[in-house]
């Protein structure tokens, strides 16, 4: 049976269909649930084996990226996401979803305005670097996919960075430190981090936009393929195991 997956959205989320398509390709059975549908559809989230928090501009990011999304999720869901993690449910927050997870305190650090001061959309190469993270474990080649954000510069204090490194929680790094490889000026070129369980991954780039050959065919070469579907397959594997 395909593991039931939830794509969690808020008003202004816009990559939910992209995320749902990637989950389908990876063998999950996704449905989208919006905060506006709560509390009526809470049960679906409770039963989900996998959760993706999709990208976009929830509430217009009017008070800072992901902030209102996090506050509303807390108001409407309470501790449900933390409980899901305790039950072993893998959670992926992409872009605005990552920003929301950071604002919720499920992931450490902060996401600030890009160093260049504006939104940036371009393809990047990501080096998977965590064997703790259920989503990146065993990925053996760089993932190539687009970024599309204005507030994606990952920052954290030295203590947090040291902890992330020592606990193998830096899930992805951009291919190099400098612009444009590191498109937003993230510290240590960090593109994604996971929590201490390895179940919760937050990342700024959009792996959901590179899950078919065609999506990447103009961007990759025979030597540099960088398909992102294995990431989602990893998530589905972890969902089955939970």
């Amino acid at each position: 049976m395909k593991p039931p997956a939830i794509v969690l959205t808020a008003p202004g989320t816009n990559r939910q269909n992209d995320a749902a398509f990637a989950l389908e390709q990876a063998g999950a059975a996704p449905v989208c649930v919006d905060l506006l549908d709560l509390p009526g559809r809470r049960g679906e989230i409770e039963r989900a084996k996998l959760i993706v928090i999709a990208g976009g501009f929830s509430y217009g990011d009017a008070l800072g990226s992901g902030r209102v999304f996090a506050l509303e999720a807390e108001r409407l869901l309470g501790d449900l996401l933390a409980e899901k993690v305790a039950q072993g449910t893998p959670i992926l927050g992409v872009c605005n979803g990552f920003q929301m997870l950071v604002r919720s305190g499920l992931l450490p650090g902060a996401l600030q305005h890009n160093e260049r001061g504006h939104f940036e959309c371009r393809w990047v190469a990501l080096q998977p670097s965590s064997q703790l993270c259920v989503w990146t474990k065993g990925l053996d080649e760089p993932v190539r996919c687009p970024v599309a954000h204005g507030e994606g510069r990952y920052v954290a204090g030295n203590a947090v960075l040291e902890q992330l490194r020592s606990e193998d929680r830096v899930a992805f790094r951009y291919a190099a430190d400098d612009y444009p490889d590191n498109p937003n000026g993230s510290v240590e070129a960090i593109a994604g981090v996971c929590d201490s369980t390895g179940l919760v991954l937050g990342m700024m780039p959009h792996p959901e936009n590179h899950v078919t050959e065609r999506q990447g065919r103009a961007m990759v070469t025979a030597q540099k393929r960088g398909h992102a579907l294995p990431l989602f397959r990893n998530g589905v594997l972890a969902a089955r195991a939970s």
Partner: peptide, 11 residues
Amino acid sequence: RYDHEVLGATV
């Protein structure tokens, strides 16, 4: 500065 990737249909 434009998102030309959202919807995943850009070839």
